[in-house]
Design a protein around this nucleic acid. Structure first.
Length: 714
RNA sequence: GGCGAGGUAGCUCAGUUGGUUAGAGCACAGGAUUCAUAACCCUGAGGUCACGAGUUCAAAUCUCGUUCUCGCUACCA
């Protein structure tokens, strides 16, 4: 196998608007860290970069909401996130940040090169503009009613309640969050990355060259995007938070966050090089560098399509692989920050690591379970019960217990020293066990090279299982009872004991080397117990049977892991339950719940209108005379509504809530002078008023008793 | 609706190019043991491989249809 000259490993830049949860950890950070630790143990040339993504509109918006500045937000979260990663053993070579001047400089250079080379397009488009604030409004500065779920405070890029991606044009009743005014449309100029020009390249590169070595989920997702037709994507935004666009007539424009964030990998590498006196260029320019991006599946489009196009245009190397993980669910539901259904890294650190209940070893317990259930091929499921079981019956009972019984027996039967190996007395079982040690090394290696972290970890644990079986069959504690007249074991018995424990201890040392990428704190504690330096953890030592010298005194046994009590699990489940409560409150309030405020809130009252505004709306009572499902649409019903003076066709998105046959004859309130709008090819002439309850269920607004169709409502 | 990924033992998941009685770990049951964190070790029970049809000597695996879950995307009060 031709080894790459050097490696550059990246983990997705976490967005610096809040704390990250264990789903993020399992998806983009932990696997990368394992891979990097493995490469470093092999003494390969590897740099692992990451950093906070600190631009985008969400951060200044959040700042406004919290009455602070964008800078204050990122300054608050950047160090906490960096510390969280450190506490969990995620060992970046550099954790940079995109607000750093070096990053701005790097991103501007990148943009300029593409722009100068004619790789970007400039287009004029109509964008919302706030006249009072005299500024164009980025998507997130526009709020309005979500066309998907009718949530009234949906943002121009996404509805926080139903999670749907939106564009500002889709919002109903758009309002500027800066002034509260209705924005006007105004022409503005933006730079675009014409992805459509690169379809052939992407198709060939991903769907042909990497059809077999990339994960099928990744290739499939890319195929879906490519087949769906690639379009030019705006590279710039009208905003004053971010990297200023280095071009003429670009006043008030910054690079769109998706463009500048991945460049953060490059600027982080530059900063690392500055810190260490190295040259960053080969890592991004030399074809012999292996670039690997670790991400979650929501990031596939950026790392497999957009950023590679950018890199190619800019003259950089392309990623060798993008081992994206699927999502990790939590106790039967999707993890979600806005719904407060999550376990933050900080929560875990507070509850399990910082207290006097296990220390850093507990970081390894989380690393263990998250790797065990890593969503490598499909969405997976985190349960606290599973966490407890994995710890108590695997880490503690199999791995930890093996190490412990080795040490205890060695102290009891071998005077606390590594016993000699009597080659002449080796049994077949001894030899087979020694072979297993070497075999495990190769298995783990192969699996890691294929990014199969879950399977690789299993093989390591399995080696401790083999150790337990070996010890059980050799039963040195029984052999020790074959005593001579002096009360000591016979010479023959002692030979057997020596050989058994010698092999057991070498196996222990191997476990430390092999577990090191996965559970680094544990590996170090094992080194401490064996009184060896960390250098023993070099991957070269894996499979070797002379890691511990004969006659060497080892420390007294100490437990590697502790059991996790039922009460701890009950407490965590209770914590989550209270999150359900606040989530229900969130639905009532139609407001994303923040950690601090769990009390129900109602949507903000819209800005005041005069009577004439209201009088413009013509409301009538109508009777539904027929209803049918609209073809090829999940949510639409085509209704005929008798309004007295005429019967109209109205298309309404209520199919998920009502069966057509159940609503015929119902009286409803209709906005009759709304401009017609085509939906799925059917013209809708009016709008049915609906009320939504706390569970998201829709109800008709209708008169108390039956009245004549066409009656006015005021 | 379109596209992508999935649906395999009570739970969490493997199953490479179709090839004998479909696997692992955990949980469970029985046994054995005591060096060890009521730990380990041995044995066992368990699955109509979502459902239906087709191709084949042979299908968890290939084809088509149905259904459910997740993601992207379209329509949308």
């Amino acid at each position: 196998m031709n080894l790459p000259k050097r490696y550059l490993i990246t983990s997705a830049l976490p967005y610096a608007n809040g704390l990250k949860h264990i789903g993020h950890l399992a998806g983009a950070y932990l696997p990368a860290d394992i891979y990097v630790r493995y490469l470093k143990a092999q003494k390969r040339d590897v740099v692992y970069v990451c950093g906070s993504d600190e631009h985008g509109t969400a951060i200044p918006i959040q700042a406004t909401a919290e009455g602070t500045t964008a800078q204050a937000i990122i300054d608050k979260y950047h160090p906490i996130m960096a510390q969280n990663f450190k506490d969990l053993g995620i060992d970046f070579d550099i954790y940079h940040r995109t607000s750093d001047p070096l990053h701005h400089e790097t991103a501007r250079e990148f943009f300029t090169k593409l722009n100068d080379n004619g790789n970007l397009e400039i287009k004029e488009s109509e964008q919302y503009f706030d006249e009072q604030a005299n500024t164009f409004l980025a998507d997130r500065y526009i709020k309005g009613t979500c066309p998907n779920c009718a949530y009234e405070n949906a943002y121009g890029d996404q509805c926080e309640r139903c999670g749907k991606s939106l564009s500002p044009d889709e919002l109903i009743n758009p309002v500027s969050t800066l002034s509260g005014n209705t924005p006007i449309k105004k022409a503005t100029k933006h730079w675009y990355l014409p992805l459509d020009r690169h379809e052939d390249f992407l198709r060939n590169w991903i769907l042909k060259e990497h059809a077999n070595d990339w994960r099928s989920t990744v290739v499939g997702q890319c195929k879906s995007w490519i087949d769906g037709g690639l379009q030019a994507r705006a590279v710039t935004r009208d905003l004053d938070w971010g990297v200023k666009v280095p071009a003429k007539d670009a006043e008030g424009k910054v690079l769109y966050v998706w463009f500048d964030a991945p460049i953060g990998y490059i600027s982080a590498t530059k900063q690392w090089a500055l810190n260490t006196g190295k040259d960053w260029r080969p890592y991004w320019e030399d074809k012999e560098t292996k670039l690997v991006h670790f991400i979650g599946k929501d990031n596939i489009v950026f790392h497999c399509l957009i950023f590679p196009v950018m890199l190619k245009l800019h003259g950089n190397i392309l990623p060798d692989n993008v081992p994206s993980n699927e999502f990790m669910n939590l106790e039967g539901d999707k993890m979600s920050t806005s719904r407060n259904w999550k376990i933050e890294m900080q929560d875990y650190i507070d509850d399990f690591i910082n207290k006097e209940n296990g220390g850093s070893q507990m970081a390894d317990v989380l690393r263990y379970y998250l790797t065990l259930i890593a969503p490598e091929t499909k969405d997976s499921e985190f349960t606290w019960q599973g966490f407890q079981d994995a710890n108590n019956s695997e880490l503690v009972s199999i791995f930890g217990n093996y190490v412990n019984r080795c040490f205890v027996l060695m102290h009891k039967l071998c005077k606390g020293k590594v016993p000699p190996l009597h080659a002449e007395a080796l049994t077949d079982l001894d030899k087979a066990t020694m072979a297993e040690i070497q075999g495990t090394k190769e298995k783990v290696e192969n699996l890691l090279e294929q990014y199969k972290f879950r399977d690789a970890l299993f093989e390591v644990i399995n080696l401790s299982r083999i150790g337990n079986q070996y010890m059980q069959k050799k039963e040195p504690w029984i052999v020790a009872k074959q005593t001579a007249e002096n009360g000591q074991p016979t010479a023959e018995a002692q030979q057997s004991i020596d050989n058994t424990l010698h092999i057991c201890l070498q196996l222990c040392a191997n476990l430390a080397v092999l577990i090191n990428p996965f559970l680094p704190f544990t590996a170090r504690k094992m080194c401490y117990l064996m009184k060896v330096v960390d250098k023993m953890l070099d991957w070269d030592n894996a499979g070797k049977l002379k890691l511990l010298s004969v006659g060497y005194t080892l420390r007294a046994p100490e437990l590697l892991f502790r059991k996790i009590e039922d009460s701890e699990i009950a407490y965590q489940l209770e914590k989550l339950k209270s999150a359900i409560v606040s989530r229900e409150a969130a639905v009532v309030s139609k407001e994303p719940v923040t950690m601090e405020e769990n009390s129900p809130k109602f949507a903000d009252v819209k800005s005041e209108i005069v009577f004439d505004d209201f009088a413009k709306i013509d409301l009538r009572v109508g009777t539904i005379v027929s209803a049918e499902k609209v073809e090829k649409a999940d949510k639409l019903l085509k209704l005929s509504v008798d309004l007295g003076f005429e019967t109209r066709t109205i298309v309404s998105g209520i199919a998920l809530h009502f069966k057509p046959e159940d609503i015929v004859g119902k009286q409803v309130t209709v906005v009759v002078n709304l401009a017609p709008r085509k939906m799925r090819g059917i013209e809708s002439n009016g709008m049915i008023l609906m009320a939504e309850d706390a569970n998201g269920k829709l109800h008709f607004i209708n008169p108390e008793g039956e009245i004549n169709a066409g009656a006015g409502v005021s």
